[in-house]
């Protein structure tokens, strides 16, 4: 599997793009040229210079430093939300697909109901009630993406369950727990991994969207979406202010989607057509 991935050019390209993002997210605080929160009223909205590589914002804060630090909450929310939705969705989906009957109908119909609402709308509602912050965002976005995983794992479980090796385990007298753990889960990992990479991209976008609207990470701590939101007001004074965070977000999204595509091509060749 790894060999095949390493032969995939798309995978290598997207990994090369993503690796610095993750490294910067990890060690961001230690490599910023300036304090990302420090005001400097003498240098407001300046363009790129040797002193401030990407210029400064409306309070004179260094944009590069804020970009570097701003990755962290985004990635953190994305990882947490993806993990929550992956675990929750897989549990629901596998149980629904394995048990069938009433349990299946209840779970899947509930998932359909959640899917009816646009995620950003639900997230707005919930953030309005509970308030924002990294932990809340993680939880809310994670819960919102559970139905996507539930659907994928549900259909994959249905498919695997009808295969003879599951029957053979059951006829040996294996417990349902063992069957799910040994026969079903290992054979549905590919669609789960693919879905996880796609969800990761979607959660980043959702987090950025919420931050853009001012409902994400609490200021003054920066995040990319929030920076884009702030910068949009100064688009005539310093157009580069809005371009830098947008570019970062765009490239990251592109890389993650490419990664998801390449993973799908390698792990799930049936889906390609």
């Amino acid at each position: 599997m790894f060999k095949k991935l390493l032969q995939n050019k798309q995978f290598i390209f997207s990994t090369i793009l993503l690796l610095p993002v993750f490294i910067v997210a990890l060690i961001g605080q230690f490599i910023t040229p300036y304090d990302p929160l420090e005001f400097n009223h003498n240098q407001v909205l300046i363009k790129s210079s040797s002193e401030h590589l990407l210029g400064t914002d409306e309070f004179g804060r260094d944009i590069l430093s804020r970009l570097i630090v701003g990755i962290q909450p985004t990635i953190l929310v994305a990882i947490g939300a993806t993990a929550i939705s992956l675990v929750g969705g897989t549990i629901f989906g596998v149980i629904a697909g394995y048990a069938r009957g009433i349990a299946e109908k209840t779970v899947m119909r509930f998932m359909d109901i959640v899917l009816c609402f646009p995620p950003i709308l639900l997230a707005l509602l919930v953030v309005g009630f509970w308030g924002s912050g990294v932990n809340n965002l993680m939880l809310i976005i994670g819960l919102l993406y559970i139905p996507y995983f539930a659907r994928i794992t549900h259909s994959a479980t249905l498919q695997v369950k009808s295969l003879e090796y599951v029957e053979s385990e059951l006829s040996l007298g294996a417990t349902h727990f063992r069957v799910i753990l040994k026969s079903i889960l290992p054979n549905i990992t590919s669609p789960i991994i693919v879905q996880a990479s796609l969800t990761f991209a979607a959660t980043i976008l959702l987090e950025s969207g919420l931050s853009f609207l001012g409902l994400g990470v609490t200021p003054p701590a920066p995040s990319w979406g929030q920076m884009i939101g702030d910068a949009s007001g100064y688009i005539h004074n310093n157009p580069f202010y809005v371009i830098w965070p947008s570019l970062c977000l765009g490239v990251t999204m592109l890389a993650i989607n490419l990664l998801g595509d390449s993973l799908r091509d390698v792990l799930d060749p049936k889906l390609k057509r």
Partner: peptide, 11 residues
């Protein structure tokens, strides 16, 4: 039981 499809009966 020995199953029908050798390509499906082994995990």
């Amino acid at each position: 039981m020995v199953f029908q499809k050798p390509y499906e009966s082994l995990n």
